[in-house]
Design a protein around this nucleic acid. Structure first.
Lengths: 262, 262
DNA sequence: GCTCGTATGTTTGTTGACATTAGGATCGTC
DNA sequence: GACGATCCTAATGTCAACAAACATACGAGC
């Protein structure tokens, strides 16, 4: 429950262009939604490590639900490519390799560049810069604390907010899945959970490029951002990193304790 | 079974870079995969029209399966945004409106432009041009026959092949869903099922731009292609179109007759 | 000593039934 | 005559049990 306060992944209302809704946008979530959210959160937090095989009976008992809804939720994550299923072998969290990392960052580049272009085209620069600056300030503070987990959270949150700014439900949904995969890359390929000292600067470049309203320059900055991140994950040894003091390593199997009621 | 020979949607092996596999890449599909494929096909073919509410008991009986696997398959399509589910209201095919059309084409632009850039970057131009030319020749023949359905099929197949050429599983999966939504747009917003006489020319431009290896020009062509298609769908009345003689209108409810064995 | 076949165990895949809930229709009242 | 409340029906949401299939381990045969 340490970092479940901000919830960057798949908010209840992904686009805020539908502000003219009455009062309640049907807040009650389906049980399958809740289970799928919990599974995503568990993958995101590293509770379910990459490549781990999952017994659905055990998972269902931990979540306090039956196997039926659990299987339905699992099919959603299979569709998202966060889980894999093989006949009679059961479910497993996707395992990350170099090709997968490259593909994830290829998808991220496509989605985030498209979102940036929408932000410039639809004149959403001011609001986007304000939102991203707030996230960036939290990133700076987390970086000063040498809190690797918080830096990673703000990194994910930054890119989710960047795409959400475009107001496109499809782009937002795509980036949510891709960011969970990114986080999974971090857990499985960057185990030291190092804090890169230049991460705030790298994101400040993006904010500045958006504020400058120069589309080619912005796209170049975003592309370079992605290429460097992908290269950093595929080339594990790095020098200009700072190891985190208490990195909150992937806990073995935190029981998910699904409330299903609140 | 008229147009199930080409199967542009989600082939069994989306990337052919894994050619070095032993002999059998585990061809057997899961039952949920089969059901999900049938549902996608039904939406793609217009058997399940946009906005139609679906009773899962009736669907399960038509497919010859129980409600459990059907519900699991439906959750996959919900994740793909092809179906929607509301509590105690059941499933429904997504309904298309102008905002959705715009979002679909925004996503398509992002994915297809990214795929084009990969094709140029990884020097896949020759093979891609050959593949697309074959599809384009079929499109030309279908256009000469005034076969609106076949033209639409080759259109979808063209763009799927374009993205598949990049060899990215994520881009291919994304475009598959977006193309089904595109087809749904055609069914719900362009009911006349008109054959645009200039459609082959429009796609020839894309092939030529790929062959020219000029990235900015190629991206501009693709973007214009998408913008015109989106504009055409949102502005229903058009003049330079040719109505199809026997347009094979959306059949009311062709029983899906799932074999599950072949 | 190695390999193949068999038996067992654990898992998934599927099915049917039960409970819950929302929608609609009917009846009563104002 | 119209509005509202209540009952009924039909659908979904959930769960437990059955069966099939794969993987593993053990033993026999070469």
């Amino acid at each position: 429950m340490a970092n479940s306060s901000h919830r960057p992944i798949r908010p209840a209302t992904p686009l805020r262009s539908a502000r003219a809704q009455k009062i309640t946008p049907v807040p009650r979530e389906s049980t399958v939604d809740l289970i799928a959210g919990r599974l995503r959160q568990a993958i995101f937090e590293g509770t379910l490590p990459a490549g781990a095989p999952l017994g659905e009976a055990e998972l269902a008992e931990q979540l306090g639900v039956s196997r039926g809804p659990l299987r339905e939720a699992a099919q959603r994550l299979v569709q998202e490519r966060l889980l894999t299923t093989t006949r009679r072998r059961g479910l497993a969290v996707i395992s990350m390799d170099a090709a997968t990392v490259a593909d994830v960052y290829l998808g991220r580049t496509a989605v985030e560049c498209a979102a940036c272009r929408v932000v410039l085209r639809d004149n959403l620069v001011d609001r986007t810069v304000r939102t991203l600056t707030r996230v960036h300030q939290r990133m700076v503070r987390a970086n000063k604390r040498r809190d690797a987990h918080a830096v990673g959270d703000t990194d994910i949150e930054f890119h989710q907010a960047l795409v959400d700014a475009a107001g496109s439900p499809r782009l937002s949904a795509s980036i949510a899945t891709l960011l969970i995969e990114t986080r999974l890359c971090t857990y499985s390929l960057d185990r030291q959970f190092r804090v890169r000292a230049d991460m705030p600067d790298s994101h400040a470049e993006i904010i500045d490029a958006i504020a400058a309203r120069d589309e080619p320059a912005l796209l170049a900055v975003v592309e370079r951002h992605m290429a460097e991140a992908a290269r950093r994950l595929t080339a594990p040894t790095e020098v200009d990193t700072i190891s985190s003091p208490a990195p909150a390593a992937p806990r073995p199997l935190d029981p998910l304790e699904l409330p299903l009621d609140d």
